[in-house]
Design a protein around this nucleic acid. Structure first.
Lengths: 225, 225
DNA sequence: GTCTATATTTGGATAGAC
DNA sequence: GTCTATCCAAATATAGAC
């Protein structure tokens, strides 16, 4: 619901000097992100977005040259925000943090931004498979950058965490990100919290389903951080 | 590419007595499934489907009362086919099959149908999040039945496989199905086979990333059936 | 920066001939 | 069972007034 957006970077050059410039643009972006998240790509028309902004459809073209440009902006902001949050959370950990903590924090932060904080991120996950090929292709580079961050993170974990060297980290990354983003389709407050979800997924991926001996001896590290 | 479809069950009652009835209908369904898989929901028009069938758009209405009815059929067949295949593969195993074998066969069969066999199943996974709410709601029961099959399978595995009782099987099911279906977006022949994928996912979910001692001693059960 | 009005396109759906 | 022809609705996009 809240109105998050990009940071001071990536602001349109033409309005960089005006302190309140982009307010109209910002409202449009926030509204578009919310509707795209709720309704999907095809069911969100420019008329709908404009109406929610208290405007008419034609007015949007003062801020964006086409629907696809607007959608592209929402997609980009969605990825860059979650990437920035996860990166920050991981970097805030001590340099010698163990693999379990690293993975748990990354998973928890991603889920928090996706499920609780950011309409842009959830809109991205929701509509990425629905947008025209041209929009998707233009956006791929931004997604790739976040995927590379995860690759590096998993590699770091594997070095320090005593991971099974037979695991193919590329597939692990795909599995984990699919599991994270897939939660958007079924997660509902009430049956479980984001914190529980993060804990479960992290333990599943690290320890697997098969019990280790002795079962009862495994501690729950970093459950609340 | 191939033209799979539903079995003798679920045939439209009005044509049940005619041996070749449904041929036109079948062609339309097969074509729709293929296009929906490739292009997505919004980008697949009735004109496109008709053209690929060598027909005109209006002719489709002799076989289906609306686009949504046609799409609903494709969705249903896609789930029922993968459910039938996975169920059959699991039932073909000996009654005392171990949990690792059960899970591996179920995962492999699902991936095979999704990625190699069945346009209907991949179309279902691809467009489920894109269709109008009305179509999706009408289809939910069919999906639920397959989800319940997985729930029962995981419960059976947990009983016989020495699984960690702290794992929440409901979440495990969601994570696994997300990971399976998510592969549709990134799987490409050449970099790895379905068999390798199934093997990796099964081992990841069962054993986790953290190496067990002694690492080298773990066998690779059922790698080639 | 927003409005009204409209051009243009597209796609689902229908009617009736054959 | 398929065709032609057409209707209708919806959506993107543009032009020009204010």
């Amino acid at each position: 619901m809240a109105a998050y957006a990009q940071g001071p970077h990536h602001r349109s050059p033409s309005v960089a000097s005006d302190p309140v410039a982009g307010e109209g643009r910002q409202l449009i972006l926030d509204t578009a992100a919310r509707l795209l998240r709720q309704e999907g790509y095809a069911a969100t028309s420019l008329r709908d977005i404009a109406a929610e902004c208290g405007m008419k459809a034609g007015s949007l073209y003062h801020h964006f040259s086409s629907k696809d440009e607007l959608i592209g902006e929402v997609l980009r902001i969605g990825v860059e925000r979650v990437a920035a949050e996860v990166r920050r959370a991981v970097m805030a950990l001590p340099p010698d943090a163990d693999a379990r903590t690293l993975l748990h924090i990354a998973v928890r932060t991603h889920l928090t931004v996706l499920l609780e904080l950011h309409d842009y991120t959830s809109a991205n996950v929701r509509i990425f498979g629905q947008v025209p090929a041209q929009v998707r292709d233009a956006h791929l580079g931004t997604r790739d950058a976040y995927e590379r961050f995860w690759s590096a993170l998993l590699k770091r974990c594997a070095r320090t965490g005593g991971w099974n060297p037979r695991r193919k980290l590329g597939l692990v990354r795909l599995f984990v990100i699919n599991a994270l983003n897939g939660s958007l389709e079924w997660f509902a407050d009430g049956q479980s919290t984001v914190e529980q979800l993060a804990h479960e997924l992290t333990e599943l991926v690290l320890d697997g389903l098969v019990a280790r001996e002795p079962v009862a001896k495994r501690a729950r590290p970093n459950a609340q951080r």
